[in-house]
Design a protein around this nucleic acid. Sequence first.
RNA 1: GGAGGGAUGGCCGAGCGGUCUAAGGCGCACGCCUGGAGAGCGUGUUCACCGAGAGGUGUCGAGGGUUCGAAUCCCUCUCCCUCCGCCA
Length: 425
Amino acid sequence: MFDVKWIRENPDQFDHGLARRGLEGAARGILDLDQRRRGAQTELQELQRRRNELSKEIGKAKSRGDDAANLVEEVNGIKEQARLLEVADQSFADELRAILVGLPNLPAEDVPEGLDESANVELRVVGEKPDFAFEPKPHFDLGEGLGLMDFERAAKLSGARFVVLSGALARLERAIAAFMLDLHTGEFGYTEVSPPVLVREETAFGTGNLPKFKEDLFQTTSGYYLIPTAEMPLTNLVGGEILDEKSLPLRFTAATPCFRAEAGAAGKDTRGMIRQHQFTKVELVSIAHPEHSNDEHERMTACAEEVLKRLGLPYRVIVLSAGDMGFAARKTYDIEVWLPGQGAYREISSCSNCGDFQARRMKARFRPKNEKAPRFVHTLNGSGLAVGRTLVAILENYQNADGSLTVPDALRPHMGGLERIAPGQ
RNA sequence: GGAGGGAUGGCCGAGCGGUCUAAGGCGCACGCCUGGAGAGCGUGUUCACCGAGAGGUGUCGAGGGUUCGAAUCCCUCUCCCUCCGCCA
């Protein structure tokens, strides 16, 4: 969400930012509405001032026992005019808001130009790809071979894009989440949170998922939305609050199930666990001081990368082009893990700095020292990491010729010391 | 599901038709005092918008109504809390 005053002062910059995302300029329409709204407002305020003045006089006159009939008459004349202006002001404001809530955040200056993923820029490649003496299998063949990953029964229960894990793989999923949470809380200063996964409409609005992306979300019959990511509850934790500057940055992490309707993804990644309606993810959220959000963004990305380093998974980091970023982001790093079974890098984390875009929507502010007005905080979110895809990556990178799986060292303490997962286990 | 009670500034809390220009407290900021700190004293401090400024308008959960005038009265809605019922 944008500050109209800022658009008024920087209309070209605003339209340029939208253009970088492949959108048409909107400043002209916004400013036209804004001007008309302010005109109505100024006029209305003048009438209200006069009305207040007269009301006071009436009060005084009546307390003196004087007749105030002509004053009352004048006020009544004002009222009808004021009502019309109020309606006009409101309708301009509504129209303006309807436009503003549907516009995405502007890309940061250093974000690469381009309208889609082909313009993303690779920043670094980390880790060694495993060298197999055999043809590496995709994770679904491995999982099904182990007898611990069942898509058919999942379909029986819930349909396509669900999975049932059992035995050592179910435990591996739990171990991965526990390992990540322990790292982020124990070494990186994040506070673990166990948030609701059903949220109100306002919460979904705050992060920018509503009103524009309603079709991506599941909704209950009683009106709750199922969270598509813990970013939603974690970021909204500070919604409507004026924080103490000294409390920043706030860092939250949570492992939650995430629910996505995947409405526009028909036919994409239909096999395996890559794209599911329900998956577990460990999320990182920072509520940062505006002057430090860029540093916080780098730090958060490093926290997510550290997970992959400790798990011994090869990956690369890319910076998304202006047109490939999500709605709320001003800059996004994607971390892509190497999947030998697919022979490709696949997204396993996405770390975004949203600037004050979400903070404005949810009115999350802090009180700066020696300034009278509160300011909006900056919000950042990143996966740290997607647990389901991490399990996929471990299966494919740690597979053995016999179809068994070596448990990465870092996870063994969370697996009761288990070193290998073999078929039938 | 049933029955009640609430929603006021960063926080707590008074107010129940016109001096609300919202008491008081806490917190915070600045100043005085002090060797320094604390205590104490003083001053300031809702937020949003309009305005170059002086200043103005709105804002007491939201929307509507009554009234010359609403935090205060009426209606609708939302949210929170308590008790009962059901229940992991």
